[in-house]
Design a protein around this nucleic acid. Structure first.
Lengths: 118, 118
DNA sequence: CCTACAATTCAATAATCATTGAAATTAGGA
DNA sequence: TCCTAATTTCAATGATTATTGAATTGTAGG
């Protein structure tokens, strides 16, 4: 992942509503959620949620698909993974011994996650 | 790591100069670099670099220490690790199978990193 | 102490981003 | 086809954030 794209992703995740949306969609899983349902869940206006969804899509954090009258958004797990990879490369670059041990502890496990209606 | 703190960290990393500083300091390792040297390396004014260093410090991405007349900044590897952990929890929450395989590939290895004068 | 150096703080300006409500688009059902 | 629902687009406003240069603080050496 290029630095510029990583910055776009970081910017996307730095905004409260957008981060809530991403977490919501990660919980929702591959099924995703319609824009309207997302708006209701995070309690913002349709036009505002649309604005943020566009931004997240542009940042490669979510992906849309049309389904009847609705547009369903779901988390872009590939994009999220790439961002983590970028961060790990930078964090551990030349110093794997510094974060490797502690990271092993967190390795891709459900931990605190509670499944949404997946 | 709390969501609020994670957002602060994402915001810090979303800015070009700041991301460059973090990468620079990760490469520099625990020895760190003086504020002036950082300013020169990333080619911004002293006052501007100071502004960004404060922001990164507040975000838990770097840590300062005084040494004679200089203030030496170094990467906060714990903070970086915590941020990665936050992202991984959210990314994989309830769906470890989705990113675990691809992530294993990136696991804390030097990869493209070229050592700075550590 | 007096001078110079390293870095930060401050105030002002410019630039970017978020929010709002109204108008426009697109797809389906009657 | 006509009407309605789901979203997006647009323009305007308000709020944050970045940049600049000058003034300030703190540290060391002569």
């Amino acid at each position: 992942m290029e630095e510029r794209q990583a910055r776009t992703a970081f910017a996307a995740l730095s905004q409260e509503t957008r981060l809530r949306i991403v977490r919501l969609l990660v919980q929702a899983g591959p099924d995703g959620m319609a824009a309207g349902a997302i708006a209701e869940a995070v309690a913002v206006s349709p036009s505002n949620v649309s604005f943020h969804l566009k931004d997240l899509e542009h940042a490669g954090m979510i992906v849309p698909r049309r389904e009847a009258r609705s547009i369903i958004y779901s988390a872009d797990f590939t994009g999220l993974r790439d961002l983590i990879a970028f961060l790990m490369k930078d964090c551990c670059a030349g110093h794997p011994e510094i974060c490797a041990p502690a990271l092993a502890d967190v390795q891709c496990r459900p931990s605190t996650a509670k499944k949404a209606r997946a």
